[in-house]
Nucleic acid binder design. Structure first.
Lengths: 226, 226
DNA sequence: TTCAAGGTTATAGCGTACAGAACCCACCTC
DNA sequence: GAGGTGGGTTCTGTACGCTATAACCTTGAA
């Protein structure tokens, strides 16, 4: 556990990171009730900065918070999975296209470095593996040089992460994982060579066959059955 | 001035609405320093709920807030105007297409009602006129039945509003305003008749020739000159 | 006996006031 | 003129009191 005073400029930021990580890693399960007092003592701060963090997470849709009601971690739903997919299907290709247009030498270096040793996620991936995967996509976002697009996509990524984890509970075949690796490679090639159309097309394909798409499909099945 | 206790469930929400409105209406100018203590007394609350509101506005990009530094209203910039346009050019057509696919009878009624008496914005528009215009577009967003897309677009709209205001300082010709009215009409027609492709196309056109686009162009000129 | 409705109490979130910490600026010294 | 130090200002965090909600219990009627 890092020392809050050393790394973060405010305890509010620290609380935000801690709680967010707890939600994304599943230590706080979807639907779980959040007691502000006990959460605050667990993190080691008082309730005011925690509240600010929770409000921020509410803004990002990770927690539900009504006045004078106990807050809870937002539950997963087939609708949200579908919603996320529809937007990312539109914005991720945009980011890839813009990246192919505007990438600098530094961007290319970062994308190459993030791609280095990147392997398709196994079932039950480590936090580091998820981070590595994210870093590659974040590098593409960054190369778009559109700040609002970057932060929007980062937020969508956070929301999607919980669905990704869910999809990874079912082991994928080697063929599917090879396919993902191939897509990462051609994504990189297209962006570096300035192939705007190609980058967008590959990215759209990448999203359509992504873990999030699998999760959306599975959740829809569950909903339709019941 | 509304009584906070009566309308809002928390003072934090009240403060958020008040400050946001002050920024969007220009009572707090871009770049202006925000003193928490005086802002709080002006609104009639203490600093804690105000701080929560400011943090929320920071998340939406309307204020800049660093640790232990004085906060300020985010300045306008050519980059942000361009960034906004690029994303809206992608997401607004998506919303229109989804709306054409999923609109319910209630959606159609609301879109029709919002379109009723809608007139292209004059120079120096009233708050009500801006609201009416927004209501029409919000009705389209809503008909997409994608909650994340709706909230994302609402946020982008807020950010874009300040640029819209800027563009309206230059009076538009009657031809341009007639064109906008025509676009609103065919947007409505396409969505109601379920013309998915058409709705997306008209919306893209609508964005490309929007006030935000004019503002982006003007800001770019200014930057290039200096 | 069971269910429903109203009131009361307990619990947990919200708001205020104040104390603490960090930053900025002015002033002084070298 | 440049660098450092001190005071003042403003933001951040804590503690506590307030208020709203919800759960439980009692009471009455079916």
């Amino acid at each position: 556990m890092p020392d809050p005073a050393r790394i973060y400029t405010t305890k509010s930021d620290y609380a935000y990171d801690r709680v967010r990580k707890m939600i994304l890693e599943g230590h706080l399960a979807p639907g779980q009730v959040l007691n502000q007092a006990s959460l605050a003592t667990e993190i080691g701060i008082s309730t005011t900065p925690l509240r600010e963090a929770l409000r921020r997470l509410k803004g990002e849709g990770l927690v539900e918070l009504d006045a004078h009601r106990d807050g809870r971690v937002s539950p997963l739903s087939a609708e949200e999975a579908r919603d996320l997919l529809e937007i990312r299907r539109s914005l991720d290709p945009l980011a890839a296209a813009l990246a192919a247009e505007r990438r600098t030498k530094a961007d290319i270096a970062e994308m190459r470095s993030a791609h280095e040793g990147l392997e398709p996620l196994p079932g039950d991936p480590s936090y580091d593996q998820l981070l590595h995967h994210r870093r590659f996509h974040a590098a593409i976002y960054f190369a778009s040089h559109n700040d609002i697009l970057i932060s929007t996509l980062e937020e969508l990524w956070n929301k999607a992460d919980r669905y990704r984890r869910m999809a990874l509970q079912v082991e994928r075949g080697q063929a599917a994982r090879d396919q993902k690796a191939h897509e990462h490679q051609s994504l990189l090639d297209c962006i570096i060579s300035g192939n705007v159309e190609g980058a967008a097309t590959v990215m759209r394909e990448h999203i359509d066959t992504s873990l999030g798409a699998h999760a959306a499909w599975r959740l829809k099945q569950q909903t339709d059955e019941s």
